[in-house]
């Protein structure tokens, strides 16, 4: 039954990783994202909430999907935005991360969305600057909004995440998506199995409460959802498996293997897909795949995170008004 508006905020000032969030935080983000999902399907898909907030998107590493998704989320919330990419900036001239960011902040920026190839870069910034920091991927560490939107997409498709069986398949070693997914899914009570070549599965990953499996067919037969990860060739300095062809034969998901199961598995992929390697095109484009739902949900989740983090910027009791 509806009652007076509920006032709640996240337990954190920055979104640095899903590991820092409580179960209640995740639930607040999801319920807020439900509202934003409704808003982005309206005739006018914009709310004025962050109109007095400036957000800098600092992408020190290439990104298409995440950058566009954050940018769209910010625009739909009416925030002013500055886009920055390392390839066209003074970083190339040798400026440090902190100097670059301090200069941007001197121009009065309230929030920062940062992607960086070094794990911990957003944490470092959060310690040294006053703005709210959102981690959009730091090296091989975490990609919290992706973890949240993946779990949100499972919740949307299956009704809840609790007790669902989720397999994360592929390059677990280099994947920040895998780590954020594991944290998020475990907090929400899902069972998680990671599957991939032994060389791409980190030692001691079972200490995070996940099972390890090396056989793709067995994993698919067990799971309700398969989150298939990209083989990150750009992060592999040495060869972890003999050839892409061999990887595809052992860990690539195609129609044939899915048809041989006695159940329908939901297929997810954080993108970008290496078509024909970890996922065949007919599977990626099939009704089993919720890859494009993930993309749509990404905007709603990022709107929710930005809204909730922005809520307490510059809060002042003196400004409180009766309503």
């Amino acid at each position: 039954m509806p009652d007076l508006p509920v006032k709640k905020s996240l337990s954190v000032d920055h979104l640095l990783g899903v590991n820092d969030l409580t179960l209640e935080d995740i639930e607040i983000i999801f319920s807020t994202a439900d509202n934003f999902k409704e808003i982005i399907n309206r005739p006018i898909r914009k709310v004025p909430t962050l109109r007095d907030i400036t957000i800098a998107n600092l992408f020190f590493e290439e990104s298409t999907r995440t950058r566009v998704s954050f940018e769209l989320a910010e625009k739909r919330l009416s925030a002013d935005i500055i886009n920055f990419s390392a390839s066209s900036s003074s970083v190339k001239k040798g400026e440090t991360l902190l100097d670059t960011v301090r200069n941007i902040l001197a121009m009065k920026v309230e929030m920062i969305v940062i992607r960086h190839s070094s794990p911990g870069a957003p944490h470092f910034l959060a310690r040294h600057i006053n703005s709210r920091v959102v981690n959009a991927g730091d090296g091989t560490h975490e990609h919290p909004t992706q973890g949240l939107l993946d779990a949100y997409s499972i919740r949307e498709k299956l009704g809840s995440v609790k007790d669902k069986k989720v397999a994360i398949i592929g390059d677990i070693l280099h994947s920040r998506v895998a780590l954020s997914n594991i944290f998020c899914l475990r907090k929400l009570g899902a069972e998680v199995t990671v599957c991939g070549p032994p060389t791409l599965i980190p030692k001691f990953i079972d200490s995070l409460g996940v099972s390890v499996e090396y056989n793709l067919r067995k994993t698919l037969q067990w799971c309700d959802v398969a989150n298939v990860l990209r083989i990150q060739l750009e992060r592999q300095n040495i060869r972890y498996f003999p050839s892409l062809r061999e990887y595809t034969m052992l860990f690539g998901i195609n129609r044939e293997i899915l048809d041989s199961l006695d159940k329908e598995v939901i297929i997810m992929h954080p993108g970008p897909i290496n078509r024909g390697i970890e996922l065949s095109s007919d599977v990626a484009d099939s009704g089993q795949s919720i890859i494009l739902d993930q993309v749509e949900n990404g905007v709603a989740i990022r709107m929710a995170v930005l809204y909730l983090l922005a809520g307490r910027i510059g809060y002042s009791d003196a400004n409180a008004q009766p309503s």
Binding site: K7, N35, D52, G311, A320, S323
Partner: peptide, 23 residues
């Protein structure tokens, strides 16, 4: 639901959580 259209965002300690819009 009017939560995202209010003029008092960032003027209270906790942000308001929205209720559902059914249109």
């Amino acid at each position: 639901d009017i939560t995202f259209y209010r003029d008092d965002f960032r003027r209270r300690e906790m942000p308001l959580l929205p209720q559902s819009t059914n249109m």
